[in-house]
């Protein structure tokens, strides 16, 4: 992509707010490489102690599912209610289950 050469590519930024939590997507930024992207992520997205760990990844490297496939991808799970504990009836007097 010739455009890529002229402009700084886009990176997506993920922050772990504190130990014990997963990294969460917060937005994007521009940088020439991952090293610079990390520094930019620090300066742009963690000015108020928002995190203890950062991930950056080139936006171009993310493969996303297509909303048109949402039915095929996610609908089939809908009627499999036996995967949830509430599906099973256990008498109230039975404890610790």
């Amino acid at each position: 992509m010739s455009d890529e050469r002229q402009h700084w590519p886009l990176f997506e930024v993920f922050i772990r707010a504190r130990a014990g939590l997963e990294h969460k997507h917060v937005g994007s930024l521009h940088a020439v490489d991952a090293k610079m992207a990390l520094e930019h992520a620090r300066d742009v997205y963690t000015r108020r102690m928002e995190g203890v760990s950062l991930w950056v990844v080139r936006s171009a490297d993310i493969t996303a599912s297509d909303p048109d496939d949402a039915d095929a991808f996610f609908e089939p799970a809908k009627d499999k209610i036996y995967r949830h504990p509430t599906f099973y009836e256990i008498p109230d007097e039975v404890k610790n289950i």
């Binding site: 700084w8 930024l29 521009h30 940088a31 520094e39 930019h40 300066d43 742009v44 000015r47």
Partner: peptide, 11 residues
């Protein structure tokens, strides 16, 4: 030179 640099230098 870039928006991200405004923030970096300010820090």
């Amino acid at each position: 030179p870039a928006l991200e640099e405004d923030l970096g230098v300010a820090n």
